[in-house]
């Protein structure tokens, strides 16, 4: 098995979903990315104003991964596992900004009653946990269950480059391939594990490792949501048919700190990253294609403000017995 750059792979599977440049779903992709970006920025703002306690791990800059991958999944039966940096995945899966705000603000109406918080979100067929690597192995177990029940579901799990140093990830890769389980491992490689750059974390390359387990890896830049969407659609379809896991390695970057205040990157580096921010680039692309995004953006902003207002005024969390 080899590791591949993005290419057309049509052998033995359904016709892949591709996004045409004039398709409605382009604006939908943008809308979801914009929603995630605004929610994350709002949360960071609330923290800076002291209106929330604890910590959050935002995915600013990585929205392409969430929206591109999750958009290609079958929400009626697929299963999604993620990690501490899961707001984007959660919003792409559920669109439930109000539930997310309420959860982080410690309200009873939060998706987990304010008990789980930012790192432990749950929705239908959506699971997350804050222990690095743990979710990867649980996802393999879920895939076994889905295969056993013959549901046709694919189980997707997001992991960061940092998680590729956890032993249990390799146990998971081994088992998923050995037992032929329908798992899509999505590696969001943003080059940093908390405050530590990749070169201090990993020997060799991380996106070639799955090959030793007989697992195909696709590597691509996560700069264009519709490209990620197309690639994921193809891969997911293959997994459904071959009952064999695959890895999708996305090169991306984090614009905000790991959580708060732990960004050790230089201003120059950060400035250069901001220049490559996919969100304004996508916006510019859509405008060039003739779309008017103002109404869409106002609507997102309004939804966000309303959700936040509702969350802030709802009753506080009660103890779990």
């Amino acid at each position: 098995m080899s590791h591949l750059e993005i290419s057309n792979k049509t052998d033995g599977c359904d016709a892949p979903a591709t996004v045409q440049e004039d398709d409605q779903s382009l604006t939908e992709l943008y809308r979801q990315m914009y929603l995630i970006r605004r929610v994350e920025e709002t949360l960071l703002d609330l923290f800076s104003k002291g209106r929330v306690s604890g910590t959050i791990h935002t995915c600013i800059g990585q929205e392409v991964c969430a929206v591109g991958v999750v958009g290609a999944l079958d929400k009626s039966r697929d299963v999604l596992w993620t990690n501490h940096r899961g707001h984007g995945h959660f919003l792409a899966w559920t669109g439930n900004a109000e539930g997310l705000f309420a959860e982080i603000l410690g309200r009873a109406s939060g998706v987990c009653g304010g008990i789980g918080g930012s790192q432990h979100l749950h929705a239908e067929r959506f699971y997350s946990n804050g222990i690095l690597g743990g979710a990867v192995a649980c996802a393999v177990g879920s895939a076994f269950a889905e295969k056993y029940k013959q549901s046709g579901a694919v189980v997707t799990v997001f992991m960061g480059d940092g998680a590729m140093a956890e032993g249990i990830v390799y146990e998971s890769l081994n088992l998923s391939a050995l037992w032929h389980l329908p798992v899509l491992f999505v590696l969001e490689d943003n080059g940093y594990a908390q405050s530590t750059p990749k070169r201090f974390e990993h020997a060799g390359e991380i996106n070639t490792r799955a090959a030793t387990f007989g697992i195909e890896t696709t590597t691509m830049e996560a700069s264009n949501a519709s490209e990620v969407f197309s690639a994921t659609s193809q891969i997911v379809s293959q997994i459904r048919h071959t009952m064999h896991p695959q890895v999708l390695a996305l090169r991306t970057f984090r614009l905000a700190p790991h959580s708060k205040g732990d960004d050790t990157r230089s201003p120059e580096e950060l400035a250069s990253l901001r220049d490559s921010d996919p969100l304004p680039a996508f916006r510019a692309q859509l405008i060039r294609l003739g779309y008017d995004l103002n109404a869409l953006e106002s609507e997102v902003q309004e939804t966000l403000e309303r959700s936040l207002a509702v969350a802030e005024t709802s009753p506080p969390a009660v103890p779990f017995i």
Partner: peptide
């Protein structure tokens, strides 16, 4: 044979498998 499985030596992953399975109804 489809439900009684021998596994690699991966104790941590074994319990994780169980967790993932249990959450999906097994």
């Amino acid at each position: 044979p489809d439900r009684v499985l021998t596994t690699p030596i991966s104790e941590a992953a074994l319990v994780a498998l169980a967790n993932g399975m249990a959450l999906r109804g097994l």
